[in-house]
Simulated scan of single mutants.
Amino acid sequence: MDGLIEIPEGNWVRGGTPDESRIVPWGVQSIAHEDIDFWQGRLDSALVDEAVAALVEGLH
């Protein structure tokens, strides 16, 4: 899908996923604590910055 940001295995600082994973920049939402089933991990800040920049660009 166009606009998705791939998450290479090396961009996981901690944790990860067993399969290929992507960020959907326009999929921003607020979730409640009870909506979280498990801790998935943490991404490096450069990839998070790229996703935030894509979201901001999409909002403009």
Results as ranks from 00 to 15, higher is better:
Val13Glu: 09
Ala51Ser: 11
Glu9Asn: 12
Ala46Ile: 11
Trp12Ser: 02
Ile36Pro: 00
Arg14Lys: 13
Val48Asp: 02
Trp12Gln: 00
Val24Cys: 10
Pro8Ser: 07
Ile23Asp: 00
Ala53Pro: 00
Pro8Lys: 06
Ile31Cys: 09
His60Asp: 14
Gln29Gly: 12
Glu50Ala: 15
Leu43Glu: 04
Glu9Cys: 05
Glu34Ile: 09
Trp39Ser: 06
Asp19Pro: 03
His60Cys: 13
Ile31Arg: 07
Gly3His: 08
Val24Thr: 06
Val28Ala: 11
Pro18Trp: 05
Ile23Arg: 00
Leu59Ala: 10
Thr17Trp: 01
Ala54Ile: 01
Trp39Pro: 02
Gly16Glu: 03
Ala54Phe: 03
Val28Arg: 13
Gly27Gln: 08
Asp19Cys: 10
Glu6Tyr: 12
Arg22Asn: 09
Val28Gln: 12
Ile23Lys: 01
Leu43Val: 00
Leu55Asn: 03
Arg22Asp: 11
Leu4Trp: 09
Ile5Asp: 01
Gln29Thr: 13
Gly15Asn: 03
Asp19Ser: 11
Leu43Tyr: 03
Arg42Thr: 13
Pro8Thr: 04
Arg22Leu: 11
Gln29Cys: 13
Glu57Arg: 15
Gly58Leu: 05
Ala32Arg: 15
Val52Ala: 06
Val52Gly: 00
Leu47Thr: 03
Asp19Glu: 14
Leu47Trp: 01
Ser30Gln: 10
Pro25Ile: 02
Arg14Cys: 04
Val56Ala: 12
Asp2Phe: 11
His33Val: 08
Arg42Ser: 08
Pro18Ser: 07
Val13Pro: 00
Ser45Trp: 12
His60Ala: 14
Asp19Arg: 10
His60Ser: 13
Asp19Gly: 09
Trp12Ala: 01
Gly41Thr: 03
Arg22Ala: 15
Asp2Gly: 11
Arg22Tyr: 15
Ile23Phe: 03
Arg14Tyr: 08
Gly41Lys: 03
Trp39Tyr: 15
Arg42Phe: 04
Arg42Val: 10
Asp44Arg: 08
Asp2Lys: 11
Glu20Ser: 14
Val48Arg: 01
Trp12Arg: 02
Gly3Asn: 11
Ile7Val: 10
Gly58Lys: 06
Gly15Val: 00
Pro18Tyr: 05
Leu59Arg: 12
Val52Glu: 05
Ala51Tyr: 06
Gly10Ser: 15
Ile31Leu: 14
Glu9Val: 10
Phe38Leu: 06
Val28Asp: 05
Ile7Asn: 01
Asp49Tyr: 07
Ala54Met: 04
Gln40His: 02
Thr17Lys: 02
Gly41Glu: 03
Val24Asn: 12
Glu34Tyr: 14
Asp44Val: 03
Leu4Ile: 06
Pro18Asn: 08
Leu59Cys: 11
His33Pro: 08
Asp49Cys: 07
Ser21Leu: 05
Phe38Ile: 04
